[in-house]
Every structure is written in structure tokens, then in C-alpha cells.
């Protein structure tokens, strides 16, 4: 085998090794953490980790910057909350219905947005998400400024009471892990390779015989559905669905998390989500406005480590390896 071939394999090896290390370390940390840290905070981190990873599926692997992903997260939160509270659906089914609703909304938004590229794509997603925000403000079932409150956490398959934070934590952990496993499978599948090919060189992928728009739409729907899975789960955790979930700042936050962690890496978005949610939670008690601080961190990130935390670590390991 030539040196170059070995180097190529070495690089793949570093990436796999790094991912494996992060997975094992995360698995151990995730199992121990709720006994040390407040489980509700951890569940919030987990939900945003999935939200950021779903967003990263689109920007990192298809090259599409959606500026309206909050619509999917927030829509699923409303639908899950309504399904659990008003329709009385079991918790797991309510979350599933929420995720499917987000995927359906993703189909509509994606269908309109993928016709344009670059900044125009982002602006269309933002505009449609803002339209959706105003719908949520006006329609009766969302209860406007009050939101849907007192959503029952219910039970898992009618067996385990999810009012217990620790029990709910492990359910959320399983949902988020399953969501990440789905993303990992998508990215590494032949379908994922076609997405990457479209990201790298769209005209070339088309001339090889792929309908790029159709693939982009499928990725968009998957990303929206997974963002919805995160949003629905979050509504169960906080027993609440409000306008905060659908407002444009949430779309901005998920971009920030992904950038901070590392666009196009599988481990980056959860890291970014943990940093952002951690700062928001623990700095909330300070007098200093958190948004300013997060803005500063964002500026530092862009100036000093543009590849994000995971991206920089990977680049460092590649350089050394």
C-alpha cells in the first residue's frame, strides 16, 4: 500500500477514533451525570444537542443554511403539548406526532425554499418561519403569549411514571441517542454520500443523474423531523410549549451552537449545545446580560477557532497524526 493510501486511511482512523472516544466518554458521562447535575438542565442540553445536530445535518452535510429551524422545533413542541394535554395521547405517541408534524411543515417550507440557493434560501426559510410565528401567535390552540402550560409528562408505555426527573432523563437520553444514531446512519449511508456530493459540486451531481432538489428536500424533511423530535421532547420535559420555541432567536441560537461546536462534524453540535445552554442557565443569575456574553463568545469563536471546538480538535489530531 502506498504512503498516500496509508495516510488516507490514517485520517479516517483518526476521525473514527475521535468519534469513538467521544461516544464512549459521552455514554459514561450521560449515565453518571443526572446523579451529579440537575436532571432538568441535562435534559434541556440533550434536547438542544439533538436540535443542533438536526440543523447540522442540513448545513454541515448538504450545505444549506436554514434560518428558520425554530419553526420545526417550536411546531413540534406545540403539537406534542396539545396532543398530550388535550387529546390525552400517551407521551411517546405525543412526541412522535410532534416530530411528524414538524416533518410535514418541513416538507412545505423545504419545497418552497430549496428552489433557491445561498442567502436566498436562508431568507426564504426565515420569512416562512416568521409567518409561522405569527400563525402561532394568533391561532387559539397555542394560547398566544401564555403558551400551552401544564402539559402532563405521563408515563412511559403506561409503566414508568415520568414525573420522576431521573426516569424522564433516561427516556430523553434514549430519544436523543436514537436521533443521533439516525443522523450518523444517514450521513454514512449512500444517501448521505449523495448529499455530500451535492454540497461539494451540485451541477456535477446532477450531471451524474441525481435530482439534487429531491435529495435536498428529503434531507430538509429529515432535519425538520429530527428538530421536531427535539422540540416535542423539550415540551414534555418543561411541560410547556411557548412562543419562545418558534421565535427567530431560537433559529439564531441553533446556528450559534452548531458553529461553536463545529459545522459538519457529528460531535460538534452537541458540544456547542452544551456550552450555549450551560452559559444561558448558569449566567442567568448574573446581572450582566447573557445575550451580550454569548455574542462575545461567538465573536471570539469566529476569530480564533472558526472550525468550532470539535472541528479544531479534529484538525489538531489530524496534524499530529
Amino acid at each position: 500500500m502506498s504512503i498516500a493510501a496509508r495516510q488516507g486511511e490514517g485520517r479516517v482512523g483518526i476521525r473514527t477514533g475521535f468519534n469513538l472516544l467521544v461516544i464512549v466518554a459521552s455514554a459514561i458521562a450521560a449515565l453518571v451525570a443526572p446523579f451529579v447535575i440537575y436532571p432538568v438542565f441535562l435534559m434541556n442540553v440533550l434536547c438542544f444537542a439533538l436540535f443542533a445536530s438536526a440543523f447540522n445535518l442540513l448545513i454541515g452535510f448538504v450545505g444549506l443554511l436554514s434560518f428558520g429551524h425554530a419553526a420545526f422545533f417550536g411546531a413540534a413542541a406545540y403539537v406534542t403539548a396539545h396532543a398530550a394535554k388535550v387529546w390525552g395521547l400517551p407521551t411517546e405517541l405525543a412526541i412522535l406526532v410532534g416530530a411528524l408534524a414538524a416533518a410535514a411543515l418541513g416538507l412545505v417550507v423545504g419545497f418552497l425554499a430549496i428552489r433557491r440557493q445561498g442567502i436566498y434560501f436562508s431568507m426564504i426559510t426565515l420569512a416562512l418561519a416568521q409567518m409561522f410565528y405569527f400563525i402561532c401567535l394568533e391561532v387559539p390552540f397555542t394560547h398566544g403569549e401564555d403558551g400551552i402550560q401544564g402539559v402532563p409528562r405521563g408515563t412511559l408505555l403506561g409503566l414508568i411514571n415520568l414525573d420522576n426527573n431521573l426516569a424522564l432523563y433516561f427516556v430523553v437520553l434514549a430519544i436523543v441517542a436514537a436521533g443521533h444514531f439516525a443522523i450518523w446512519r444517514i450521513v454514512r449511508s449512500p444517501f448521505g454520500n449523495i448529499l455530500k456530493a451535492i454540497r461539494d459540486n451540485e451541477p456535477r451531481a446532477i450531471s451524474l443523474g441525481y435530482n439534487a432538489d429531491s435529495y435536498k428536500l428529503r434531507a430538509f424533511v429529515l432535519s425538520a423531523g429530527l428538530a421536531g423530535l427535539a422540540g416535542g421532547t423539550n415540551a414534555i420535559v418543561f411541560q410547556l410549549a411557548t412562543l419562545t420555541g418558534v421565535q427567530w432567536q431560537s433559529s439564531g441560537e441553533v446556528i450559534l451552537m452548531t458553529l461553536l461546536g463545529g459545522i459538519g462534524t457529528l460531535t460538534g453540535p452537541p458540544i456547542g449545545a452544551a456550552i450555549t445552554v450551560g452559559l444561558q442557565t448558569y449566567l442567568a443569575a448574573l446581572d450582566f446580560p447573557v445575550t451580550v456574553l454569548i455574542g462575545l463568545i461567538f465573536v471570539v469563536c469566529v476569530l480564533l477557532f472558526r472550525r468550532g471546538v470539535a472541528g479544531e480538535i479534529l484538525a489538531y489530531m489530524r496534524k499530529r497524526g
Binding site: 479516517v12 454520500n193 456530493a197 461539494d200 459540486n201 450531471s207 451524474l208 443523474g209 441525481y210
Partner: peptide, 18 residues
């Protein structure tokens, strides 16, 4: 038009069999 982020083997099997 080789795809930068794919390996040789992935580039090879990417186009659909027509």
C-alpha cells in the same frame, strides 16, 4: 469533478447505475 469530501471508493460508487 471529483467530490472532495468522498473517498475514491465512494466517488466510484456514487453515480447511479443507469
Amino acid at each position: 469533478g471529483i467530490f472532495a469530501s468522498l473517498t475514491v471508493a465512494e466517488n466510484l460508487v456514487l453515480p447511479p447505475v443507469v
